[in-house]
Simulated scan of single mutants.
Amino acid sequence: MRLFTALWPPDDVVRDLAAALRPGEQAVVPAPARPVPEREWHVTLGFHGEVTDPARLAAGLRAALGGRRAPTVRIAGAGVFPGVLWAGVEGAGPEDEAALSALVAAVGESDPGEYRPHVTLARWPRRATPDLAALTALTSYAGRWWTPEEVLVVRSDARERPRYSAYQRIALGPPPGAP
């Protein structure tokens, strides 16, 4: 079973970002880029790949992540990796940036120093060079702040729709000052 851990943005955050990608109802993600379906937009904390004992992995992640401080984040800005258009994710302040990095470190699959939180919006063959008008549309984009209540351990299956399904949900602790 292929697994990864992620934060899933709330529906209104996804709708707002989707609207920013369609100014005037015309999509700004050009061919040959393939948009990632909005229902699949997430912030990956760690990719675990093919896991032979998913229950053991989930138990370890529950122990490492359960009750950790939830960061307050928003989707803001954009960039590209080879073959990928992404929207950035930033914390509301240094404590939130640290809390997000702590989640990545607790997952243990990424070097927090090299980790760039993002939401993948579109993919294309690495050889292609699409006109990235979406970068212009998203450079100054900043969505609303949100605080995830949980980390999802997600099953990924490219042969099924929806492609992703929650395998395990791990509750996060509240941010400081929350009731």
Rank of each mutant, 00 (worst) to 15 (best):
M1P: 15
L3I: 11
F4N: 07
T5G: 10
T5M: 06
A6P: 07
W8Y: 07
P9M: 03
P10H: 04
D12T: 12
V14Q: 00
D16T: 11
D16M: 05
L17T: 04
A18G: 04
A20T: 13
A20Q: 11
L21W: 02
R22N: 12
Q26T: 14
Q26P: 06
A27Q: 11
A27D: 14
A27I: 07
A31S: 12
A33R: 14
R34Y: 02
P35T: 03
P37S: 01
P37Y: 03
E38H: 09
R39S: 13
E40R: 10
W41S: 10
H48D: 04
E50V: 08
E50M: 07
V51P: 14
V51N: 13
P54I: 00
A55T: 11
A58R: 03
L61T: 03
A63C: 02
L65V: 06
G66I: 00
G67P: 00
R69A: 05
R74M: 01
I75S: 05
I75A: 12
A76C: 01
G77A: 02
A78W: 10
A78Q: 08
V80R: 15
F81V: 11
P82S: 13
G83P: 10
W86G: 05
G88F: 03
V89I: 07
G91P: 06
G91A: 06
G91S: 10
A92L: 06
G93L: 07
P94N: 05
E95A: 15
E97H: 15
E97D: 14
E97R: 15
E97F: 10
A98H: 11
L100S: 06
L100N: 08
L100A: 08
A102T: 03
A105S: 08
A106G: 10
S110W: 06
D111E: 14
P112D: 14
G113Y: 05
G113C: 04
E114C: 12
E114A: 15
Y115W: 09
P117M: 02
P117W: 01
H118Y: 04
H118C: 02
T120H: 00
A122C: 04
P125A: 14
R126Y: 02
R126I: 07
A128W: 00
D131E: 13
A133S: 13
A133E: 14
T136Q: 13
G143V: 00
G143D: 03
W146S: 05
P148N: 15
P148D: 11
V153F: 09
V153G: 15
V153S: 13
V154G: 06
R155G: 15
D157L: 08
R161A: 12
R163P: 02
R163L: 06
Y164K: 12
S165R: 15
S165A: 15
Y167Q: 10
R169E: 10
R169N: 09
I170F: 04
A171S: 12
A171H: 07
L172I: 08
L172P: 06
G173T: 08
G177S: 10
